[in-house]
Simulated assay, not measured.
Amino acid sequence: MPRPTAAQLAYGSCTVIFSTLAMLLLSQTSSGLGIAVIAFSALALGLLVAMTVPLPRTRTVATPQPTPVVQQRMPAPREPVAATVEPIREPSTP
C-alpha cells in the first residue's frame, strides 16, 4: 500500500476536525457515548476523504509507434513494344 501524500493527510485531518466540531455543535450532546460516536464517525469520514483524494499520476514514457509502411499501388511493368517500321506505300499514279 503506498504511503499517503501530504494532501491526503491535510484533507483527512481537516475533515476530522471540522466534522467533529460541526456534529458536536449541531447535536448539542453532553454524554460520553454521544461524543464517542461523533468522534468515531468523524474519524471514519476523515479516512474516507483521505483515501478518495486522487493520487499523483506517475509519468509513463510512451513508446513510439512504428510508422506504417504505405504500400503504393504501382502499375505492372510493361514489356516494350517492338516498333516495326513498315515502309510507307503510296498509291502509284499512272
Score class of each variant (00 low, 15 high):
46 G>C: 00
27 S>A: 08
91 P>Y: 02
43 L>Q: 02
70 V>S: 07
32 G>V: 13
86 E>I: 01
81 V>D: 15
25 L>F: 11
49 V>H: 09
76 A>G: 11
42 A>P: 04
55 L>W: 14
55 L>R: 15
68 P>S: 05
47 L>P: 00
73 R>M: 04
64 P>F: 06
76 A>T: 09
38 I>E: 00
81 V>H: 15
40 F>K: 00
83 A>Y: 13
67 T>F: 05
49 V>I: 11
88 I>T: 03
41 S>R: 03
72 Q>R: 05
81 V>P: 15
85 V>D: 08
71 Q>A: 03
83 A>G: 09
46 G>A: 06
56 P>F: 04
64 P>C: 01
45 L>K: 05
23 M>S: 15
86 E>M: 05
75 P>F: 03
81 V>Q: 15
23 M>C: 05
55 L>Y: 15
70 V>D: 10
55 L>N: 14
48 L>C: 04
65 Q>D: 12
90 E>D: 11
87 P>F: 15
75 P>Q: 13
27 S>R: 12
73 R>G: 14
49 V>Q: 14
45 L>G: 02
21 L>I: 12
66 P>S: 03
85 V>E: 11
19 S>Y: 04
80 P>C: 00
75 P>Y: 04
30 S>T: 06
66 P>N: 06
18 F>R: 02
27 S>D: 05
50 A>G: 06
45 L>S: 01
64 P>M: 05
51 M>I: 04
32 G>Q: 11
60 T>H: 15
86 E>S: 10
32 G>A: 13
40 F>R: 00
81 V>W: 15
87 P>R: 11
88 I>L: 06
63 T>V: 12
47 L>K: 03
80 P>F: 07
35 I>P: 00
84 T>I: 11
24 L>G: 03
54 P>K: 15
48 L>A: 09
82 A>Y: 13
66 P>Q: 01
66 P>C: 02
53 V>N: 01
